Amino acid sequence: MYLAKSYSITGYQRLVTELGYNPVALMKSEGFVPAQFNGADLFVSYSKLAELLERTALECQQPLFGLLLTQHQPLEAIGPLPLFAAQAETIGEALNKVSSALYLQASGVHVRQIPVGDNTQVLMDFDISTPLGITQIKLLSLGHLCNFVAEITGLSRYNFDISISAPAPYQKDYRQSDYRQVHFDQHFCGITLSTRLLTQQNRQYASAISSSIKRHVEFLRDQFPTSLEEQVRQVASALLASGDCSLELVASSLDLHPRMLQLKLKEQDVSYSQIMREIRQTLAEDHLRRKSMSVTDLALNLGYADASVFSTKFKQWTGLSPKQWQKKVGSS
């Protein structure tokens, strides 16, 4: 199963609204909810994300939707990748660094460099597929690549020569992007750069990277959710406050049937209900310790209908009511 960070489509709701359509309805049609994208930084199914973008492009009649989305995104949309690139002295080395760390942002996509005469093609390969195709994910990824290369070269992101292995749009009246050279029906997906440019110094290179940045890079590697249990925890934690944190929705976010998700978790000696209990207890104890909200508000934020149900559950977990636990911790 391939995963991607939900923050990679930051600005999605704003752009869809600008185009005159309902972003929430489109997200729900693919099994997503706004809580997964409203500032959340969690992994979701890469294929389902691709399908959401394809459906959105069709609904909005905007064949360049993925590229348009990247025009107003901050560099943070590509997650921690600039941190890795900052360790490279040249632009070519920075691209190699990003390629090796790309799994931290999305699995199932690869970046490689192919020399062609005086130029180098920076190619993107994708392992995912959807019934609607993956043209929009390709455009989104190429837009991210242009934004990143612009950051490390100082060149305008709109001047790069973009090639995409997808049919040319048939609509004639769609909103154009600011990218000036977008070529469809190509045999590869990527951008073409001067080979000489790749030997130049990376503008973001720090000749002596601080130990704190190095530690942060290692931290990011360690935080990558390699186990299904950790993936479920990330998705469930983000959805909990939305009031809809059902097994079905979490499974859909990870592109799994609910029964299959349960079976895979069982293979790891854990259950969905156990994960949810641990998430709720951890969050409850944290809020009670900090006295950040009332018991009633806490109950609602943890997905309980009322405070009495939450209090009963909390006593089952700890042997104390929320107020008793809070008093005990406060006096210790």
Rank of each mutant, 00 (worst) to 15 (best):
D125N: 14
D127E: 15
G154M: 01
G154C: 01
S129M: 07
G66Q: 05
V109R: 08
M124H: 05
G108V: 10
A106N: 09
P115I: 00
S207Y: 05
S107I: 09
V111Y: 07
A150E: 04
Y174V: 03
F126R: 08
Q171N: 03
Q200T: 13
D127S: 14
S99P: 12
D118G: 01
V98D: 06
L81K: 01
R203D: 06
Q171E: 13
S141N: 10
P82V: 01
D125C: 03
G143V: 01
V182M: 07
H72V: 00
Q171I: 07
D127Q: 14
I191P: 03
A150C: 01
V111G: 00
T70L: 02
E151A: 13
R112G: 12
V182Q: 08
L123V: 15
D125H: 11
A106Q: 13
G108C: 10
L139T: 08
L68P: 04
A77S: 15
L81P: 00
Y158L: 03
V98G: 03
R180W: 06
G79H: 02
G133F: 12
V122Q: 09
S107A: 10
P115V: 01
V149G: 07
T70V: 10
S177V: 06
Q136P: 13
Q201E: 13
Q136Y: 11
G108A: 08
D161A: 04
E89Q: 10
C146S: 15
R175E: 14
L67P: 11
H183Q: 11
L197R: 01
P74Y: 00
Q176H: 11
S129F: 14
A150T: 00
H110Y: 15
R175S: 09
G79R: 03
V116P: 04
R203E: 11
R196G: 05
H144K: 10
E93M: 05
D178F: 12
D118A: 09
H183D: 08
D178G: 06
G108H: 08
D173N: 15
V149Y: 04
Q71E: 15
F148W: 10
L155V: 00
L95Y: 05
D178H: 14
F188M: 12
H144M: 05
Y170D: 10
T70D: 04
Y103G: 06
A166F: 10
L123C: 05
Q204W: 04
Q171C: 02
Y174S: 05
L104Q: 15
L132R: 14
A86M: 08
S99V: 05
Q121H: 13
S177Q: 09
H110M: 07
H72I: 01
A106C: 11
V109H: 03
K97R: 09
Q105G: 03
D127I: 06
S163C: 12
G143Q: 04
Q121R: 15
D173Y: 14
L193E: 11
D178K: 12
L83N: 04
Y174A: 03
Q186N: 12
G79S: 12
H72M: 02
G117P: 00
P115N: 05
Q121E: 14
C189Q: 12
A150P: 02
Y170S: 14
S141G: 09
Q176S: 13
A206L: 13
S107L: 10
Y174C: 06
E76L: 02
Y205R: 02
R203L: 15
